[in-house]
Design a protein around this nucleic acid. Sequence first.
DNA 1: GAGCCGATATTCT
DNA 2: GAATATCGGCTCC
Length: 180
Amino acid sequence: MSAPDFFRGEVFDVAPRLLGWRIVSEVEGELTEVELNEVEAYNQDDPASHSYRGPRPGNEVMFGLAGLLYVYRSYGIHWCANVVCGPDGFGAAVLMRGGTAVTGHEVMMRRRGRVARLAQGPGNLAQAMAITGEHNGLDLFDPHSPVRLESANRLVPHLATPRIGISKATDRLWRFVPQA
DNA sequence: GAGCCGATATTCT
DNA sequence: GAATATCGGCTCC
């Protein structure tokens, strides 16, 4: 199983099409599903991207095949999950910044220690679904993978806004959220 | 609800 | 030594 063809296109075209998709996690034998409502695009020709300075230990996955999961540590504390995009050897990915819980509310509440905003925010999303650095590089379209993506089969009307928490290339409107 | 702040790993200067 | 694709707890409205 491999990613749909459009994942190999421009990352800023792929990102908005992921709104409404579901991430499915079966880590630790517990099922959780989240429907994406916030994503950001990061391109190789993009000073704000980890891939901007080329492949190096820790970001190689971003240069791999479209449809792989790229996980990195943020601020030394949080894990953040991305979907690799573009052709093989090109460093681009979509950061999954947040979504709404669909399945496994109890599991997510336990992992998060709260009942609200279970999967809103990239660090929170990863924590709720128990996604960590050990999942870096796995195939999101392999039915046997513990973390997978499921198509929404629809295009969600969306807005393009500035990305969060970056200081470079802030003029690129590559954060996508459903239109109000 | 807004604003400050500390925690902490990795990379870059 | 500084910066970072963050968060939650705290204060003070």
